[in-house]
Computed example of a mutant assay.
Amino acid sequence: MIWWKMAVQSPRGDLSYCRRFHQTYIGSHEPRHLREDFCGTALLAATWCRGGVFRSAVGLDLDRPTLDWGARHNGEMLGGSAQHQLALLEGNVLDPADSALLVPFPEAGPEASASQSSASDETHLLRYLRHVAAALDQARGGIFVADLLGGPAAERDLTLPRHNSTTGLGYTWVQSGFDPVTRRMTGTIRLREMDGREARRYNFHYDWRMWTVPDVRELLRQAGFSTTYDASAGDGGRTSDTSGSQEASGSDSEESEGEADFQPHEDLDPEARQRLQRGWSAYIVAVLAPQPG
């Protein structure tokens, strides 16, 4: 089982890495089930299901209109009977009853997905991570994957115009208001029309607590995960390369498209480590090892 949440999604690259992490840390059996917390429009979960009839996914989010939009647009890409592979639920990941709703496919393997950006303080984040560990398959094991960003590039005011080569649409990422004491950062995505004008009515606003890799690793240990790993990319990694495709078939070759240059931190060369001084993006992979017997 894979547990996942990403702030800015490039589904093909994200899923390729997830499958690679699962094979490396859990075993050779193909993961079947993905859980996506704070799922929004559930693009990642829907793309996962599209990779094969044996796959299933569930997503949880607080915002019903967003879930409905995702069901209409991303869920429909599954087509016909395949739509039963995806379940989108409204609820709070910090509520044990709502969190328990996310395991409607008991026969599925142990993958899941989740993002820390909405957990605003250490108590809430630890509580959430304990729910994650409890929901994973204790017998077969599973992984929890999340992404983090940080460094000076994530802590200063900036405006970055971006373009999605797949959809042809553009947007501007506006970052402002980082507080070094509370480590909270606010940001806005301003979509642009095809003619380049900003479509202000489609703005997305974020209020994030910026966690460090050591902080999250320690909380994962307290939550009951046996091991954690990180894979890093310099210069903000994912934050500076967000042109991922909006659809994928799920095959190995196609899922590999859209990957950023993520490497285990200990394998980074001196030049890559130098780039981390400006800004970084990292996957955190928490492993719940299979129980013997």
Rank of each mutant, 00 (worst) to 15 (best):
V174H: 13
R19T: 08
R156D: 07
S10A: 02
S240F: 05
E111S: 01
L101V: 05
N203I: 07
Q9A: 14
H73T: 15
P96T: 10
S81G: 14
E271C: 10
T66G: 12
L136K: 03
D215V: 00
D14L: 13
I26F: 00
P292M: 11
L86C: 12
S115G: 07
S28N: 13
L94G: 09
Y206R: 02
E90Y: 06
P290M: 09
Y283P: 09
E255M: 15
P104Y: 05
H265F: 06
A135D: 07
P214F: 01
V174A: 10
A114K: 00
G142H: 01
A272I: 02
S10H: 06
L126D: 03
G142T: 00
P11T: 05
A282M: 06
D269M: 00
F38S: 13
P104K: 06
G109Y: 08
S256V: 00
S115V: 00
A134D: 07
S256C: 01
E266I: 04
G293T: 09
N164Q: 11
P152M: 11
A7I: 12
M210P: 03
S99H: 11
L136P: 05
L191C: 01
W280S: 13
D68L: 04
E36C: 02
Q85D: 05
E155I: 04
C39H: 01
R275M: 09
G244Y: 03
E257C: 10
L126W: 09
E266V: 10
R200E: 02
H73D: 06
Y202R: 12
